[in-house]
C-alpha cells in the first residue's frame, strides 16, 4: 500500500476552469518529493485535497489508504502540515497553541518539542499575532513535526522567509523526520531547496502532471538543446519523440528533451538534420523555467 496516493484528481473552483485535471501519482514510505509548478498550477489545491480541507470533485486522494474527508481524524493524527497561508490562531499564545497540539496528538514527543522550542527560542507567553513571519512559521513547524508524523505535507513552507531561517526550517523538518522514515511532500519555488532535499520531483502544469521522476534521473536523463532559429521548424521540433517543450528565446529555440545530451544531439541531427545544436545537461531551475514558459 502506498503512503500517499493521488488518483485522477480533478478540482475546479469555477465551472470550466479546472485547476486540477486528472493528477495521479503516489509516494512510498520515506520518500521526499518536491512538488513544482508555477503559480496557479494547482499545488496548494492538491495539498488541501490531501489534507481533506477540500474534497476532490473527481478521483481520489488517500493517505495510508484512508480517505482524508471521511477518516479525517485518524488520518490527521498521523500527518503534519505546514503551509504558507496556514493560519495559527493569532489571539492565542505560543504556549497555548502548543498545548492544543499536545492534547490532540497521542504520539506527541515532548522531548522533541522541548528541543525545538529551545532551538527556536520561543516564549510561551507571546501571542502569535506579535510574532514575525519566520517565528510564526517556526511555531507551525514545531506543531507539525513534534508528533512525529508519518507523512509531512509542506506547502510553500519557506515562502517569505529569509535564507537563513528558510534553510533552518527545511533542514530541521527533513533531518528530523526523514531519518525516521517520514514521507514528505513539499512544494516550493526555491529550486535550490528542492534540489537539496528532494529525492523525487513532481511537476504539475496547468492542472496536469508534467514530470514525475527521481531527481538524479532528471539530472542525468534530461537535457536542454539550444538551436539557432534560422532553419529550425518549431512545430517539427515539438513533435519529436522526447521533446517536452520548445520556446523562442533571444533568437534561438530552447527545447527540453527527456534524454541525455549525447542522445539529444544525435536525435536532432538524425531526425531534423540540425547539426549546430548545443545540447547540455540542465539544472532544475532552468528546466522549470523552460518547461513552464515553453508550454504556456
Amino acid at each position: 500500500m502506498k503512503t500517499l496516493e493521488f488518483e485522477d484528481v480533478h478540482y475546479a473552483y469555477q465551472e470550466g476552469a479546472d485547476v486540477l485535471q486528472g493528477v495521479s501519482f503516489s509516494l512510498d514510505e520515506g520518500e521526499v518529493a518536491g512538488l513544482l509548478g508555477k503559480n496557479g498550477a494547482g499545488k496548494t489545491t492538491l495539498m488541501r485535497i490531501a489534507m481533506g480541507i477540500v474534497g476532490a470533485q473527481k478521483g481520489s486522494a488517500r493517505i495510508f489508504g484512508l480517505d482524508p474527508r471521511k477518516d479525517a481524524v485518524e488520518m490527521k493524527r498521523r500527518v503534519g502540515y505546514v503551509s504558507e497561508d496556514q493560519a495559527l490562531p493569532e489571539f492565542l499564545t505560543v504556549g497555548e497553541v502548543i498545548r492544543l497540539h499536545r492534547r490532540l496528538f497521542p504520539t506527541w514527543d515532548e522531548p522533541l518539542e522541548r528541543r525545538l522550542r529551545e532551538r527556536f527560542t520561543l516564549s510561551p507567553k507571546v501571542k502569535i499575532k506579535t510574532l514575525s513571519k519566520g517565528q510564526a512559521r517556526q511555531v507551525a513547524l514545531l506543531c507539525a513535526v513534534a508528533h512525529r508524523p508519518e507523512v509531512l505535507l509542506l506547502d510553500e513552507p519557506a515562502g517569505g522567509l529569509d535564507p537563513a531561517v528558510r534553510r533552518e526550517f527545511l533542514e530541521t523538518s527533513v533531518r528530523l523526520l526523514n531519518e525516521t522514515g517520514t514521507t514528505i511532500l513539499f512544494s516550493s519555488h526555491y529550486m535550490t531547496d528542492v534540489e537539496r532535499m528532494a529525492g523525487r520531483i513532481v511537476m504539475i502544469h496547468e492542472g496536469r502532471l508534467l514530470i514525475d521522476n527521481a531527481l538524479d534521473d532528471l539530472r542525468e536523463n534530461y537535457s536542454l538543446a539550444l538551436i539557432p532559429q534560422e532553419g529550425a521548424d518549431r512545430r517539427r521540433l515539438s513533435d519529436l519523440k522526447g521533446c517536452l517543450s520548445v520556446r523562442v528565446q533571444g533568437g534561438a529555440l530552447h527545447a527540453i528533451f527527456s534524454c541525455e545530451p549525447e542522445r539529444c544531439r544525435a536525435l536532432l541531427a538524425g531526425e531534423l538534420e540540425i547539426h549546430n545544436a548545443f545540447c547540455t545537461p540542465i539544472a532544475l531551475e532552468d528546466m522549470f523555467i523552460e518547461l513552464v514558459e515553453g508550454r504556456s
Binding site: I53, A72, V73, Q86, A87
Partner: peptide, 10 residues
C-alpha cells in the same frame, strides 16, 4: 480554518 488541519472531528 484554525482547526481544520488538526485531528478534530467535524
Amino acid at each position: 480554518q484554525y482547526v481544520e488541519c488538526l485531528p478534530i472531528s467535524r
